[in-house]
Amino acid sequence: MVKISKRIAQVAESPTLATSAKVKELKAQGHDIISLTVGEPDFETPKQIRDAAIEAISQNKVNHYTPAAGILPLRQAIVDYYQKYEGLDYQINQVIVTEGAKNALYSLFQVLLDEGDEVMILAPYWVSYTEQVKLAGGVNVIIEAEMENQFKVTVDELEKHRTDKTVAIVLNSPNNPTGSIYSKEELTAIGNWAVEHDIVIVADEIYAKLCYNGNEAVSIASLSEEIKKQTIIINGVSKTYAMTGWRIGYALGNKEVIGKMIDLANHSTSNPAGPSQYAALAALEGEQDFVEKMRQTYEKRLSHFFPLLESIPGFRVLKPQGAFYVFAHVKEAAEQTGYQSVSDFSLAMIEEAKVAVVSGDGFGFPDYVRISYTQDEETLTEAVNRIKAFIEKKTKE
């Protein structure tokens, strides 16, 4: 029997990818499944970005290894982007380009954490944070935020969980799965608290450009020089430019931390894929009209979809401010349809209602489901109609 390391054995399967795989399997069998599971835009990557990758290949720019930290023009473009849109000054040696933002997070935890170091994870949380902390030998300290508080926590709540082993806090705003956004005042309070106690702020800003109805995501690093020094920004091109498959993320911050992340890349991934780097360069340096068009589309879909979700019996929802998810409390719906858990309820919806959502277990809130609205309005309406019919049928049984 092949031995599996304890380190890997403790890692849970990603519920989002597992549900997505099940949907693909059922679709391959001919089932008409509406999938509201996947965290990626349904837009095509803009043509000028695709063309930049093709041009890089045609001009033989990508035949060899690039620097482990990414090509210099792309790193400079990331520096310029944060200067232009956030007023933040970074140097090239404070930037690393990675294989998606997920890899940036993974590498960062490997660099920051020793065995037993604690990381504050604000729940609901993105499914991979906790698993990546485990893989780095860290300990997850889960701090739950309630719907009644817009799924946000206060400094007082953070302080209750702080110990002498606290190394970092992960702050995801706009949040996956809730869509909540921390205000400038809330971020300032958290930032100053982190500075006071020398706690690294891991600022996941991957959804920063997807904000709706007048809401705006502020980069916590922009609030003061002291907070900036305490912050490592994680971002990428996946959500903003519909480039999830291109796998380009990046991290900005303390040059020593970034330097160690580069050392890790030298011995693990070598470098991100060349064509993808040139595509990302075109995305950051090119016209940004596409970003606003996509944002407006999702804002319109949210305005259409949210009232429909509110009308589903047993669903309790909070209107998101950003990202492209609704995090719905559906425990009542599960119970009235005869299911002991939301996980069972979600599975039954896939099999019987032919609508797929992601159970909240992996996000730390098992009474909820994450619903993605990266589908057109007609499809979203049909999904709600199917869910309602499913609940009505099961309630009568």
Rank of each mutant, 00 (worst) to 15 (best):
Y368I: 10
I201Y: 03
E335D: 14
K84L: 10
K228S: 05
P366H: 09
G253P: 06
T231F: 05
Y90P: 02
T45V: 14
D89P: 04
Q132G: 05
V62L: 05
D164R: 14
K165A: 14
A69E: 12
R370P: 02
I71N: 00
V79K: 07
K229L: 06
F43M: 08
S219K: 01
I33E: 04
I34Y: 04
F327Q: 00
D32F: 11
Y373E: 02
P275A: 03
F43D: 10
D117S: 09
I391M: 08
V291M: 06
S268C: 03
R316Q: 14
E86V: 06
I121Q: 07
P73G: 03
P320T: 02
E392Q: 13
T240R: 11
G116C: 09
I199L: 10
L309Y: 02
Q277M: 15
A21W: 14
A53L: 07
Y90M: 06
P46N: 11
I206A: 03
V170F: 11
L210Y: 07
Y373M: 07
A203W: 09
K24Y: 12
R301W: 06
I190P: 00
N254G: 06
I181G: 08
V153N: 04
E186W: 09
D89Y: 13
Q48M: 14
L318W: 06
I181Y: 03
T163W: 10
E382I: 09
S173Q: 05
F306L: 05
P174T: 09
L112E: 02
E99I: 11
A280P: 01
Y182T: 07
G322P: 01
V23R: 03
